[in-house]
Amino acid sequence: MSESKKIIKNKVAFLDRKIPRYASVLGITVLLLLWETICRMNLVPPLFLPAPTAILSDGWDLMASGELMNHITASLTRIVGGYAIGATVGIIIGLILGFSRWADAIFTPVVYSIYPIPKIALLPLIILWLGIGEMPKVAIIALGVFFPVLINTFSGVKSVDQTLIKAAVTFGSSHFNVIRKVILPGALPTIFAGLKLAAGTALLLLVSAEMIAAQYGIGAMVLHYGNLMITTKLMFGVMILSLLGLLFNRGLHWLENKLIPWK
């Protein structure tokens, strides 16, 4: 017998490798540094691609003058209002369609025929109906949020385990309580998938609507400085949008963890 031995190693250790925290900021930092150097070396004209520092310093002017705040407030009001309305109505209608076979049979074809329409195409019509104030912008966002939330809620309801519903009924639940205590929590993970999807749609519609018909708002601001060819301020607006999207997503993520502690 030879004395040589061969230790068996974990071949899938890479699956649970721990990554240090700084890794997540590494990519962005490198990108920004690269960007700054390219601009400093005058490889591209500043009109096409201004340096990050130039964007930030012009952005600072926008903030200091209070102009930015006006735009942000206008945008936030629209998106928060539209999103809240669209999501709430979407969840409620989704629950009803999922629970009632009659409602499902009657309304699902209607939903599926309106769903594929790019909602921004409806803006002129909605302006005709609601006038040119804030209402049409809020409405178009609500509409864009409504459909993905509704469809996800509906499929979430359909995927709730039938035995859980049977269990609830056996232990004395009314129909309303079955919806509230079993179907809603059971569908919640899928509902959140819809809410996240809708966040992207909401931002897209916000900017489009503001570019088409608004004086204030990040979208209007980006368009305005684009027309004036002030690229720094345009880019600053774009950065604000990216930040807004990020915050939106984080917020939903936080809410999801709060509301679904059993996962």
């Binding site: 859980l164 049977k166 929590p185 679904i260």
Partner: peptide, 15 residues
């Protein structure tokens, strides 16, 4: 009253 114990157990995961 009826009490049922299910084969699939059917506990509410969120409770």
């Amino acid at each position: 009253n009826l009490g049922i114990v299910f084969q699939e157990i059917a506990l509410f995961p969120w409770r």
